[in-house]
């Protein structure tokens, strides 16, 4: 390792310790803000894990998130907490594989449409099941999990998602996905099993999203389908990842932090018009920052380091 890498690692470790000790010196408001920040950081990074390299826009974040939350609502009081999380992981992975295998073989378009409807589909199935089989709509979540526990679990999950993202980028799988993102036909001709690579990564990404849903569930104490499968979550995650730039591992996190703060502010100040304002922010990002903040940063730093001899070809 080079000295700069060691320094970065040390700084990261020190930052992590400071973050881990946060519940001991922050009051309840800042703790809950930190939880929101971590939640969206993990969600956006997990989203970027799949959609970044492959450029397949997934609109199903809330479907997985809601499934995680519902798993806790159903099993939280019956089973031990680690076991509940494990089951949530399994369900999320299974669902991602079913969706992935049935749509990712076809084309990006079918995938987008399916993910667009997936949350609605799962929500309808949950309602149908609750109404017909258990005859309750809405459940209480009484588990022995405090805000501090939620915070630490999310922090651990954030570390895990970055570690796994870093490992994937260095593995054969990550390389294969970058080729798929550039040109899928070429990837096929190189002998890459395109479907397997895409489905694997989609499942990994979905597992993280499901886990966030499961971890966040105790925060609500009351859950019903319309809360757990809230479509704005899918939307917020996409806009955060886009603002940061989904082609870099740390890009989505860069977008998640300012936007979470903005959304907190908006929902507190302008509750009735927040949807409208968020939509406008989204459009501004799509038009003004197509590569995200990290893309802009890379362009600026490239321009500085190289004298402008020939125009750069943007890929």
């Amino acid at each position: 390792m080079s000295p700069t890498q060691i320094a970065a690692l040390a700084a990261g470790g020190a930052g992590l310790v400071v973050l881990a000790l946060l519940p001991f010196y922050a009051d309840a408001y800042y703790l809950s803000l930190a939880i929101s920040l971590l939640q969206f950081t993990v969600l956006a990074t997990a989203w970027g894990l799949f959609s970044g390299p492959t450029r397949y826009v997934s609109l199903a974040t809330t479907a997985f998130f809601g499934v995680g939350a519902y798993t806790v609502a159903v099993l939280g009081e019956v089973l031990a907490w680690p076991l509940v999380l494990l089951i949530a992981t399994a369900i999320g992975a299974l669902m991602a594989m079913i969706v992935g295998i049935s749509t990712l073989r076809l084309s990006g378009l079918h995938f987008v449409i399916f993910t667009f409807g997936l949350a609605e589909l799962v929500r309808q199935l949950v309602i149908w099941y609750e109404v017909n089989k258990t005859r309750v709509l809405g459940r209480y979540v009484f588990v022995d999990i405090t805000q501090n526990d939620i915070y630490w679990q999310l922090l651990a999950l954030a570390v895990a998602v970055f570690a796994i993202g870093w490992l994937i980028a260095r593995s054969r799988l990550g390389f294969a996905l970058r080729i798929i993102g550039e040109d899928e036909t070429v990837a096929k001709h190189c002998g890459i099993n395109v479907t397997l690579a895409k489905v694997t990564l989609f499942a990994i990404s979905a597992v993280f999203i499901t886990l966030v849903g499961a971890i966040m569930a105790p925060r609500w104490t009351y859950i019903e389908p319309s809360i757990a499968f809230n479509p704005t979550i899918s939307f917020q995650v996409v806009i955060m990842a886009l603002l940061g730039g989904a082609h870099r591992l740390w890009g989505p996190a860069v977008g998640a932090i300012p936007l979470t703060l903005l959304f907190e502010f908006l929902s507190a100040r302008f509750p009735s018009t927040s949807t409208l304002i968020i939509g406008i922010v989204f459009l501004l990002i799509v038009y003004a920052l197509p590569q995200g903040v990290t893309g802009l940063w890379e362009r600026v730093s490239r321009r500085k380091s190289e004298p402008p001899v020939a125009p750069q070809v943007q890929t």
Binding site: L242, L276, G279, L283, V286
Partner: peptide, 14 residues
């Protein structure tokens, strides 16, 4: 897709 996704929330918000 992304632009109309944003538009969807604008029209809905209005």
């Amino acid at each position: 897709l992304l632009a109309t996704f944003g538009m969807m929330f604008i029209v809905q918000g209005i």
